[in-house]
Nucleic acid binder design. Structure first.
Lengths: 242, 242, 242, 242
DNA sequence: TATGAATGAGTCTTCATTCAT
DNA sequence: AATGAATGAAGACTCATTCAT
């Protein structure tokens, strides 16, 4: 196909009249920052538009590069998302597990920590976005969702369940509480609230302070696990409303 | 007009021009039902694959028709989602409110009822699947999404909050519980679990009995609102976890 | 994403002033002809441009449809080529084998027939093009070439080899001829000549009558297999130039 | 200038500023050899994958450099092919002609030599691979293709034809053989077999010893030109196959 | 010289939508 | 009322080529 090729290679450089400012390179090399930049951009756009609705060119534009560059660092669109998920995966749950393993004190305190750090901390922008992506994933890309779920969700729930069981063993929590359900419901509740409020505009219709929600959720969580105090006399009545 | 009808679906024989009415004709599907059939199909597939990932041909196949037919009844793909959402918008909350208004008995029982009927009934396939709307709609029709959210969610939470406040007033629930958060967290938790589980994916990796989850959630809900009983013998850090 | 949608559905048709000629449909349905048309177009374009250099849009244009239509009938570009090849596969070699099986007479006559019908008949445009595609395939799409080769080439050679062996058995051919090589060389020679002359412009530089080439090739083929006549006296000398 | 040289290839140690000449320095690859290396690599990959299917990065990898380097030595991908073709254009035929001119002995021996040296030597990797040019070049540089064809093919055929005619004159070959066709068919057959076999593909499905193929081809060639000996006892249809 | 990051035009492919039947 | 052939715009992805280093 022998295309024409007008650009001469190695033109003997014309002596510049006055050594002009180096002509502002069209682009710069940032081999180390690029992947992170791309990931960040992808995260933002995915969270805002949803995975399917996001075009590669959106991400590229958001990262200030062209489409091709994305493919230099990532195999394809899915890979971006997966990498995003892995980042959360590995650090998040494992870190929490480590945290719990080393910490002493009452189980309730540990549970509080896990909920805060793992599912509720609204201070870290990246992590919040990430959570949103997780959720959108289910709708937009179920096949990816499945891959992501195992570590981040199931393992997280397992960790919490373990804590609760430990609390039951020490008598801190009531033995008849369904720890597995508790682990799932409180975390899911918090997640969905974050999703709706994070980028879906629920705050406009239903303003709610995030800090309060997290604090109250933990409060409710722990209260729901409190040992039932059997007031001997009132036994029958108690059973009813519990 | 039995002229061309190249792909008859469940029409065992062409009706002869003048035949006597067949004794017990298999309920001929009336054309009026088509839209509903299509919506049902759409609902199932949207729930299973997500809105974006669903092809019109998937829906058509699920409904036993061809793509073209969908366009006879709906303007386009979005219209299907919209129509679905409108159905969800049917003031289910009002029904619940009415239910509560007429019922007597302890608040905890009412709360239990509301949770069951409004957010947790896993037997009603339609309602469960419809929840997909809560995620997909935001991207594809923010306007409608806001409306649905208001009607189904915010109003629902208000209803529950009211109940909790009533419980506090009667002393059934502890006064320091954050009723507004409770209303949001437990419902959201249940909803998200249903969303994730409604259409394969999570269930494969984290099987969980639906009934148990609902029952346990209500149990946790009520426990989390129980009045705090001060146990005389304060064992050091006990205060913390209550 | 709820796109605008200006096209009204079922506009009550404006009464035309004078019943104008039906407004020349933008396209017509040709479900039966299309596949063949597409295949023909593909064959022509592949032969002219080569497989890789051919864009789907070229084929579409050549067939008078749009790109999308191709995908209605074929899975992808490769599938077009494969289908083209299959067409030749099945018919060609099997037909030749059948032809040989039923024919009587001297082996040399059968061989002549096989060469003519199978590798040399220049009268059928489609088959000629097909052969060209075969050859180009090796350069353009080795992965497809491999798939195609088995039936068309290897089996074809096997057929010819069988014939030659039969000829040896009857004494028609010399026993020391390498039938397997002969099968490959004469057919390949004819093929490559056809390729070069068919669409690669060799005729301009080296004009050659096709009929003559085929006839002469068969003549050479048969001569090369002729029994060696041992003239007892001249044995030594004969060996040299043979 | 041992400044930046981030990917030294086979340069075991940086030469120290003032060291005595190392006793036997592994032949440092001189930069002059780069182009040749690249061409060799290109040749191999083109032959294996086909021109279009070959990515510059494939060639670069095969040559042990990176893509950018190729552009330092060649204008573009086409240029590689062109340069390859030019190499093929080096009048090999002239050499053969000279060879023939000086040789004595029977024509059949000369013919054997020409076939061996010119079209069949499977030990010379470069020349064998170069044949890919005969197919790819046509699409990508018809102009050059024509030139190569003239030089390598048409002239080659002329040479062989001349030999055959000479053989006819001396009575070594039968007078009624079509020498021009013979020249074309046997060379083309051998070439196409080499092309197909040179780069995997055919060999996998139809293994064949190269030496045998060449030897047998020459054998067939000479046999096909043998004078016809009329065997007295005409056994019916014998005439046909001669 | 050489590298390899970045580019962007070119293609394949998908699929919502239209429309002849 | 329904079909399914055909469309065409959109978007993912590839890769030859450029260029900062």
């Amino acid at each position: 196909m022998v295309k024409k090729h007008s650009t001469p290679r190695r033109e003997p450089r014309r002596v510049p009249p006055r050594a002009p400012a180096p002509p502002a390179p069209k682009w710069t090399r940032r081999p180390d920052e690029r992947p992170r930049e791309l990931l960040n951009a992808a995260l933002r756009v995915f969270a805002a538009r949803g995975y399917s609705a996001t075009r590669l060119s959106d991400i590229a534009a958001a990262a200030g590069v062209t489409k091709g560059t994305i493919y230099y660092y990532f195999k394809n669109k899915d890979a971006l998302l997966l990498r995003l998920a892995e980042a959360a995966d590995q650090s998040e749950v494992d870190r929490l597990a480590a945290l719990v393993a080393t910490s002493t004190g009452p189980v309730s305190a540990q549970l509080r920590t896990v909920m805060r750090k793992g599912f509720a901390d609204p201070t870290d922008e990246t992590r919040r976005l990430l959570r949103i992506v997780y959720l959108a994933l289910h709708t937009d890309a179920p096949h990816l969702f499945a891959k992501v779920v195992q570590h981040a969700l199931v393992d997280g729930w397992a960790l919490i369940t373990t804590l609760i069981e430990r609390g039951k063993a020490t008598g801190e929590f009531r033995a008849d509480a369904d720890g597995e359900t508790a682990a799932r419901i409180f975390t899911s509740g918090l997640l969905l609230q974050h999703l709706w409020r994070g980028s879906m505009g629920l705050d406009a219709q239903d303003p709610f302070d995030r800090e309060r929600m997290v604090d109250s959720t933990i409060d409710l969580f722990l209260h729901s696990l409190r040992p039932t105090v059997r007031v001997r006399a009132a036994r029958g009545h108690r059973r009813t409303h519990t």
